[in-house]
Design a protein around this nucleic acid. Structure first.
Length: 805
RNA sequence: GCGGAUGUGGCGGAAUGGCAGACGCAGCAGACUCAAAAUCUGCCGGUGGUGACAUCGUGCGGGUUCAAGUCCCGCCAUCCGCACCA
């Protein structure tokens, strides 16, 4: 009997060995495989078992690929700039640089406890000047290409974080970080022209092996629509209003027009009689938050007193203002066709505006219309020259027709907005721009990068729309790189997402001080083959990274234009009843104690066993006992057998081959929870055999230990050594293959059904003939066999079903 | 409102249209033990029956099929995403 398994001793031993003799080495001959984790933000709370899950999945996958002969790029780093670090620092009175460093140290220790094959030589930290030098460099390149520009406009503002936010950072009208209600603030901002890439970001989704859900979220977020801009002349004025519509086919049914209250002409259109009401409405709209506007059950609005002219039929249409029209989409003005649009219909009903149907539904006009008819299906009516045309056809042709008539033009619109890139906060990369009275905005010359984030006594946000950096005169005041005159530095910093938009490039060349990454290395090791992380970044980090990569591709920095070929979103680990783990709920489970009590291998396997990797799962500590018991049984089986010379039986050979086949197929399907249960099943079978014949053979031991290696690497190494091998299992051995012939069964037990219900079982040859099968089935059934047989079904190896009356 | 995912024992979950509940947790009984822990063995969806067995059973209602957790149609519930984008 071998000594009992002691996880503390064994795991410590192998971690030491792996450090001394790395197992994932690049010999220059192996093909590469880049398996990337979404790098963590080093929070003061440390990791919980939910973070572990994704890291375990990616490590199992990395080791699996290693055992298939790949050089696996599996790096880790720290996304350490951004609001949370700063808020934590403010709350605890510690400088962000210090608290971040402490947190990195702690989390790094926790991550090393996973015993993943991370290559720590590749480590990056977004707050390291040698890293953010290149974050700033990319900004300068964008600025030079006109993709980074300054603009004053009302932007989303978080009053609690006291900073502007990107559209992507506003969730249900609230700050993505702190959940405070977001307001609007007029600020001069740096913007990134991500909209210039809208089409490519949308179309290249087709190239990606990503979850459909994420692709859908991105394509919805980009929100491309095809339509037309149409010009309506304002009656009695030398002005016209341009509207955007996706339904130019319904233009004859436009009975009124609505402008956003923020529209440039809104005030001007008011007449003497309406002036007060119009101004009141505009004022009220400006004071309402997004949330208020969203919760509106009923439409509000005000008539300006002015009319526009429908360019097709010359009819007068009243111009209204309403906050259901968005100022920053399209032209901020719409034509309203109440008969064929739900929102316009509701507005028309409320304010008693005319409704003219222009598409026949089921060939006729609807009497007493109660809901808008929104399908583009039917023949045009009440539409002058267009009468009799099919609306579906017209919808496509109308933009061209309108363009020919000179009253409008074709237009493609996007929901995607340019990226608000300035943050009025301290803990971020300074935007490398100098403001000169004569030269305007001038980029900091590349040889002067990085613009170091200065030390500062007070890093609390000011709330005024200026960053705390603005208070440091000696830093702000500089000279213009162009003309040499006194000038001022830009004091806003970049958002959290700046560093994470390109960090995956830096890992493979993290010490390069000449380039952000050498093109040779980038093109050799990238794109990322497998990216593993939570779904919460679907329209944030993942969209920004794609944008950055496409830009870097355009300026020739890299050869590829998509960063992540395959994406896997692991499900969230929650506490009891699906409650998200959080400090405030007091339901956070730390991996530290579990490693101590059960060992890293057991925790790794339980993280997988807890449920399908892509689904959320409720954590229950008790389940880990089962995995630990399995590991002990597995260890005892192999270590006991190692000392014996068991001759392999046919049964052992069959089980071994089946196990290789099964486990491999399940890993390839990413069904990692059933891999663990598969190990248990096969081990239980082998234990039964071992009980009868004293153990299992050496070959089977070698194979099953190899299969276990990506999952429980310490135990696998230990057993590999016990089995007499000298080198690491990951170096000496590769993934086992199976012999299809050897795993075939000769006979099989199949169920015998009568009218679809199981009434008995027969054991027959796998390829038995139908006659033989039916004969045996009837013998088993005896008098349960129906007298009048209508049909006999026999699916070899599966089922026999006798249908009777 | 629109879109997506999910729904199976006390619990986590398994099941290329072919014996529902694998595997594990919890529970119960037994073995070992002075005892406990650990370990091992057995039982473990409901109802009826001492029992072999019968019968019902994968959110609900229909349908297709020799056969449905799985496919189709219509609902319900929960979760997630988007949310007046004209």
């Amino acid at each position: 009997m071998a000594a009992a398994y002691n996880h503390k001793v064994v795991e410590k031993k192998w971690r030491g060995n792996w450090e001394a003799h790395p197992i994932n080495v690049n010999d220059g001959k192996k093909p590469k495989y880049y398996c990337l984790d979404m790098f963590p933000y080093p929070s003061g709370n440390g990791l919980h078992v939910g973070h572990w899950r994704g890291y375990v999945i990616s490590d199992v996958w990395s080791r699996y690929k290693m055992m298939h002969g790949y050089y696996v790029i599996h790096p880790m780093g720290w996304d350490a700039f951004g609001l949370p670090a700063e808020n934590y620092a403010i709350k605890n009175g510690v400088h962000p640089r210090i608290s971040t460093q402490e947190n990195v140290t702690n989390i790094k220790r926790q991550i090393q406890d996973i015993s993943a094959v991370y290559d720590w030589d590749m480590e990056v930290n977004t707050t390291d000047p040698s890293f953010y030098k290149w974050t700033q460099w990319i900004f300068v390149q964008m600025f030079n290409k006109g993709l980074a520009y300054e603009k004053e406009m009302p932007i989303n503002w978080c009053p609690s974080c006291k900073t502007g936010l990107a559209n992507e950072e506003v969730v249900n009208g609230c700050c993505e970080r702190c959940h405070s209600e977001v307001t609007k603030k007029n600020l001069k901002q740096w913007m990134l022209k991500i909209t210039a890439y809208a089409d490519r970001l949308l179309e290249d989704l087709n190239k990606l092996d990503w979850p459909e859900k994420v692709k859908k979220m991105q394509s919805d977020w980009i929100g491309r629509s095809y339509g037309a801009e149409v010009d309506f002349k304002v009656e009695g004025k030398e002005k016209s209003i341009t509207v955007y519509t996706t339904r130019p086919d319904t233009l004859h049914g436009a009975t009124f027009m609505v402008l956003a209250p923020e529209h440039a002409l809104a005030k001007e259109l008011a007449t003497q009689e309406t002036q007060k009401d119009v101004e009141d409405y505009i004022y009220r709209a400006s004071t309402r938050s997004n949330i208020d506007r969203m919760q509106d059950k009923e439409k509000t609005g005000v008539f300006t007193g002015s009319y526009a002219v429908n360019p097709l039929n010359g009819k007068k249409v009243p111009i209204w203002l309403s906050d259901y029209v968005l100022a920053d989409y399209g032209t901020g003005a719409i034509m309203c066709v109440p008969a064929h649009d739900d929102r316009d219909f509701e507005f028309a009903k409320k304010f008693h505006l005319p409704i003219i149907q222009v598409i026949a539904k089921d060939g006729k006009e609807i009497e007493n219309m109660e809901v808008a008819y929104t399908e583009a299906a039917g023949t045009m009516i009440n539409s002058g020259d267009w009468n009799g045309m099919e609306s579906a056809v017209l919808k496509k042709e109308a933009p061209a027709i309108i363009e020919k008539m000179g009253v409008g033009k074709k237009k493609v619109n996007y929901k995607l907005r340019d990226w608000v890139f300035s943050r009025q906060r301290y803990w971020g990369e300074p935007i490398p721009i100098i403001h000169c009275d004569d030269c305007g905005c001038v980029a900091v010359p590349e040889d002067q990068l990085p613009v170091l984030l200065p030390d500062v006594a007070r890093y609390e946000p000011t709330g005024t729309g200026e960053s705390p950096l603005a208070a440091i005169d000696e830093w702000v005041n500089t000279t213009c790189p162009k003309c040499g005159k006194p000038a001022k530095r830009e004091t806003n910093t970049m958002p959290q997402w700046a560093g994470s938009s390109w960090y995956f490039l830096r890992y493979v060349d993290n010490k390069n001080d000449k380039q952000l990454v050498s093109p040779q290395r980038a093109n050799q090791y990238l794109p990322v083959d497998m990216y593993i992380g939570g779904v919460e970044h679907a329209v944030l980090h993942l969209l920004y990274s794609r944008f950055y990569t496409k830009f870097l591709n355009d300026i020739g920095a890299v050869d590829f234009d998509e960063p992540f070929t395959k994406l896997f979103n692991q499900g969230m680990i929650t506490g009891k009843n699906g409650v998200k783990m959080s400090k405030s709920m007091g339901n956070v489970v730390s991996p530290d104690d579990l490693i101590e009590d059960y060992g890293c291998d057991a925790l790794r396997m339980y993280e997988l066993f807890v449920g399908p990797p892509e689904m959320d799962a409720e954590w229950d500590d008790r389940g880990i006992d089962g995995v630990r018991r399995f590991l002990t049984r597995f260890y005892n089986l192999v270590s006991d057998s190692a000392e014996k010379n068991i001759v392999p039986t046919d049964e052992l050979i069959k089980i071994r081959n089946k196990m290789v086949y099964d486990i491999t197929a399940r890993i390839d399907n990413f069904s990692l929870n059933t891999v663990v249960s598969g190990f248990m099943e096969y081990t239980n079978k082998l234990l039964d055999i071992a009980k009868n014949i004293g153990g299992i053979d050496k070959d089977t031991c070698n194979v099953i230990v190899t299969l276990l290696a990506p999952f429980a690497p310490h135990m696998a190494e230990e057993l590999w050594e016990i089995l007499g091998h000298k080198k690491s299992i990951f170096i000496e051995n590769s993934w086992p293959t199976y012999d299809e012939e050897a795993m075939k069964d000769d006979t099989v037990e199949i169920a015998v059904q009568v009218n679809g219900k199981v009434k008995g079982k027969v054991t027959i040859a796998v390829d038995a003939s139908k006659d033989l099968a039916m004969e045996q089935a009837k013998a088993v059934l005896g008098d349960k066999c129906p007298n009048n047989i209508v049909k006999e079904i026999y699916v070899p190896g599966k089922i026999i079903n006798i249908v009777g009356k």
